[in-house]
Amino acid sequence: MLSRVANNLYWMGRYIERAEHFARYSKQIYFSSLDAPILKTYDRNFVLESMLYMAGIFDMEGMEEKDILFRIGLDTSNTNSIISNITFARENARGARNVISTELWESINKYYHLATSYPQEVYLTTGLYEFNQLILDQTSIVSSKIYGTLLHDGEWAIILLGMHIERALQIIRIINSKLHDIYKIEQTGHPVNEMSFEWTTLLRCVESFDMNRKFYRSIPDREQVLEFLMLNPHCPRSIAYSLNGIRRYEAKISQNESPQSNTISFKIGKLYEQYRYLSFDEYKDDIYGLLNYTQDRITEIGAELEKKYLSF
C-alpha cells in the first residue's frame, strides 16, 4: 500500500468518525436542553457554549445562536465544522479512490453531496435535527460499506485504525466537555445527587444510554457512567473498546507478533493492558488526570503512526 494512500485512508476514517461525533453531540446537547429539569441547562448560552467547546471554539463573543449553529454545522471556512469534516473525508476517499470499493466510494460521495447541498435556511430553522440525523444515517451506511464491501486487509485495517483513534479521542473530548458542564452546574449549588439527567445526556451523546441501562439496570450516576464509557470492554463507544480496536488494527498493519519495547505496537499494547486492568476506584478522584494521560498517549501514538507509515 502506498504511504500516501494509507494516509488518505487513515484520515478518511478519522474525518468520518469525527463528523459523526460532532453531529451527535450537537443534536443531543441541543435537543435535550429543550426540556431539561435543571434550570442551568435551559440557559441557551450554556448549551451553545458546550457545543462550541466540543468544536474547539472558545470565544462566542458577539455571536448569535444562528451564527453558532452555522459555524458548527455548515460553515466551510471553519475547518472544524461538520461540513468541513465531511469534505475532508471525501477528498481523502477521492485520493484513495482506486483502492476502495465502488460501493464505499459512492456511499461517501453521496453522503458528501447530500450534506453539502443541504439548504442553509432550512438547517437554521426547521432542519437542525434532520441535518444531524442525516449525518448519523449516512455514517451508518458508510460504515456498513467499510465492513461489508472491502477486503479485510491492510487497507481496511488502516481505515478502522483511523476511526478507532478518532473515536477514543472524541469520547475523551465528549466526557471532558460534559464533565465541564456538570462542574458548572454544581458550582450553582445544584445537588450532586440530582444530576441523573446530565449523566443520561452524556450517555446519549455517545449513543450508549440503552447499553448502559441494560448493563446496570439502575438510574445513571457519575461513577457508573464514567466507568462504563471509559472501561467497559463490551461497549463499542468506550475508551477501552476503542483501544482494543487500535491494538487489533495496528497489529494487522505492522504484522508484529511480539513487539519490541520501542515500537508503536508495544506502546499501544501497554496502554490497552493498562485499561484492561484498571479499576475505577483507583482513579475516581482524578478522572481529568486519567483522561489527559490517555489523550496524550493516543496523540503520541497517532503521531508515530503517521511518521512510520503515512509520510511520503
Binding site: M1, L2, S3, R4, V5, A6, R97, N98, V99, G154, I158, I253, K308, Y309, L310, F312
Partner: peptide
C-alpha cells in the same frame, strides 16, 4: 478508474523516487 480496473496502484509523482537509476514507490 483505469488503475482500479487494471488492479494496479494509482500513484502521483510524489509517491515515486529514483535511486541509482531505479524507480521506487513509497509504501507503508
Amino acid at each position: 478508474f483505469l488503475a482500479q480496473k487494471m488492479g494496479v496502484p494509482l500513484v502521483e509523482g510524489r509517491d515515486l523516487f529514483v535511486d541509482k537509476n531505479f524507480v521506487y514507490m513509497k509504501t507503508i
